[in-house]
Design a binder for these strands. Structure first.
Lengths: 306, 306
DNA sequence: TCAACGATTTGTCCACGACAAAATGAATAC
DNA sequence: GTATTCATTTTGTCGTGGACAAATCGTTGA
């Protein structure tokens, strides 16, 4: 592998794959089809990308995540792309959201992490765990996601935010520590879902109600979810899908899991990706928002009151 | 992507890459050269791997990580490989470790998660955070990893273990909450490293010493690590590499980061993958084990005592 | 015991073709 | 207007086989 040491040096294809999240195959096929990027070649004939092209690739990647298509964005100039990105979140922001953001969002900075932690702790004390999740974390999550889209915060700040929220939520959940309640709920995500906050928010909502939650964290293979649910004699399997999860895959995976589980085990699916898709998910309880989590819990208890 | 529902489910090449950490290229080239694996083909002519071959691939991967060579291990039978692996950690395990493991390892079961939590909490209370990490979590981690390779525990149990340890560590770290200390340490992993426990263990070791740790969690792109370290005016960047991380990539990435950071910012690299590799990592402080973390901290403080 | 140096092993990269899944848009029915 | 269906693009992944440099091994000589 080439790792040229000079600072302004161009970048090998493997490094570009890492930095942009675009697979080597994709990079090569774009070059073939759209004429971009146009890497130089090293002495060995291997692709070597100039840093500014990698930068443009990163921009493109963001725009793809937002829903634009390669053929539209790849031919555009770097400055056009920046403009596109700019106008894309303008529309998604409301005044009162901006208001709320200001409170904690200003602490989502590397050098203010201490204040963020303090702020989060105060909020959870004041509001209690459930309201904290619903009224503070959920909107803050969205605000951070949008600020990220807008390029106002970087990857490190987004990571830092996730870490700190995780710390607060996990501490709070541990403190509730109610074992033996019912229903027994198994929480996890499918293998391609990395985001853990949705899961923790669900757990933080359910645990105070006396449900017995066991979380496997993210990325559990489907077959293992099945075996864990059956062997652990769970009543419910809860899956979380972030906005970035492809709907089609979510539907397929969920239906496959539904087919693999006995009917006595319910499946609850929550998160932006599956919101409002109950029609395509027969046999699955779609959770539309955090309050709906409690509704689902109530329904289960009513149905199993014996 | 095809995920056939049949119970004896076969696995596509992308899934195998994810599960084993072997690149698609490598999988294809092994098939060409060594005649293994021998995937079936689906209707579309694409490779479809039987689960038992994926299992063998995982074993092989593990043995490669230990230093054996593909030509030696690929032709061997699955049971031979298991035996090889077995004898490979025999030597690294002491009787009293086995004793300690038994205590908590028996709780790493889905239906005993409550006891695991209790046991972990008791241990952290009794030993204090640092000793808890060094004497309980570290060996337990290894035991779980090996039990997993041996097939004694499943994915769900491994996930559950990770989750619970995470809960305990994060709570304990939060409780120490010492801001403003020095050095300022930025903790994270490279994009291909998913494992978070190493990071948390480092943080749990450093925070009680009064260091000011900020963790970005896993999977931060190299360019973002650089910008965060510089903008956040950190003194040290700490990276964690699990046993599964390809050594070559670790070396390349570390040297690239070293070149990108000002010399005033130290880089500390810890974890199984980089253990004892200081010769290949000039300018980088390799952390060999948890106690070495404290040594590194002491060195830094001596060097910066002014 | 250690350094140097061919021989061999091994992972990554390349090119280009193929194809199925996803997105789009037009046409149709409710 | 709003859905549903269907044909048409778009787009990412996969396949083959060849090539090559970096890592490793094994031998030789100090």
């Amino acid at each position: 592998m080439n790792t040229p040491i000079s600072p302004d040096t161009a970048i090998g294809i493997a490094a570009v794959e890492r930095d942009t999240g675009l697979s080597k195959d994709t990079l090569r096929v774009w070059e073939r089809r759209y004429g971009f990027p146009t890497p130089d070649r090293d002495a060995n004939g291997e692709r070597v990308y100039p840093p500014d092209q990698v930068e443009k690739l990163r921009l493109i990647r963001r725009l793809l995540d937002v829903g634009l298509r390669p053929s539209k964005v790849i031919p555009a100039s770097t400055s056009d792309l920046a403009a596109l990105l700019e106008c894309h979140h303008r529309k998604a922001i409301s005044p009162e959201q901006q208001e709320r953001e200001l409170t904690l969002m200003q602490y989502v900075r590397l050098h203010r992490s201490a204040e963020l932690v303090t702020g989060l702790h105060q909020a959870v004390m004041k509001q209690g765990l459930q309201r904290f999740v619903a009224e503070t974390i959920a909107p803050l999550n969205e605000a951070v996601g949008e600020a990220w889209m807008r390029g106002e915060i970087d990857v490190p700040e987004e990571h830092l935010y996730t870490e700190q929220v995780q710390n607060v939520l996990r501490s709070a959940i541990s403190a509730h520590a109610a074992h033996g309640g019912s229903p027994r709920i198994l929480l996890t995500t499918f293998p391609d879902e990395h985001h853990v906050l949705g899961l923790l928010m669900a757990e933080a909502t359910l645990v105070p109600e006396g449900a017995s939650c066991i979380s496997l964290g993210t990325r559990t293979p489907l077959a293992d979810i099945r075996s864990a649910a059956v062997n652990g004699r769970f009543d419910v399997v809860g899956l979380s899908f972030s906005i970035a999860y492809p709907l089609r895959q979510a539907v397929d995976d969920l239906l496959e899991l539904r087919a693999a589980l006995p009917a006595s085990i319910e499946i609850w699916a929550g998160g932006q990706a599956v919101k409002g898709k109950e029609r395509r998910l027969p046999g699955i309880r779609v959770i539309n928002g955090l309050d709906d989590t409690l509704a689902a819990l109530k329904e289960w208890r009513t149905a199993h009151a014996d």
